[in-house]
């Protein structure tokens, strides 16, 4: 598709949507957002890009293969569950700790964020591998 508007939009929306998706991902534990929605938001600019410029270029921009994202995501989620097991609790028990950041006090951090990161990556990987495959189909 050779629409100048679409091409320009696709290019300028990319960083904005990606930052927005990170924002959604991080706020998810306390406010609307979370890995699933953030993953969809992150996949959208690449989908637009592939419509505007074709899947080959979109893949090039993404740099990693979508299926690697899927595998990494699944692995991250399983590992986050295994961390709970490694301290003798049932699989997927959340383990929490504190990070002391200079200037801004302490930050609670736990295995669910790793789990959510897994969801995020899987959602990006799945939607993009389907969209790219459709785009490339003859």
């Amino acid at each position: 598709m050779t629409s100048l508007i679409l091409r320009t939009t696709a290019r300028y929306l990319m960083p904005l949507l990606l930052i927005f998706s990170v924002f959604l991902f991080l706020r998810g534990h306390n406010q609307p957002g979370g890995g699933f929605a953030a993953g969809l938001v992150a996949a959208a600019p690449f989908a637009l890009y592939s419509i505007a410029f074709g899947a080959v270029k979109a893949r090039h921009v993404l740099q990693v293969r979508p299926r690697y994202l899927i595998v990494t995501g699944l692995l991250a989620s399983v590992v986050s569950g295994a961390i709970g097991m490694s301290v003798g609790k049932p699989f997927l028990t959340g383990i929490w700790g504190y990070l002391y950041l200079p200037g801004s006090g302490k930050l609670e951090i736990g295995t669910p964020i790793l789990f959510d990161l897994g969801v995020y990556l899987v959602v990006i990987g799945v939607s993009l591998s389907i969209i790219f495959a459709l785009e490339e189909a003859e």
């Binding site: 534990h29 957002g33 890995g35 995501g73 569950g81 699989f91 997927l92 969801v119």
Partner: peptide, 27 residues
């Protein structure tokens, strides 16, 4: 679960195994 967004806490913590199943199905 150290979270205020109940929906997300359910997804990633209380019912984490369901979510794990779902992302596996998606893959």
């Amino acid at each position: 679960a150290h979270g205020r967004n109940i929906v997300n806490v359910i997804l990633v913590d209380f019912r984490g195994i369901d979510t794990l199943g779902e992302i596996t199905v998606l893959s």
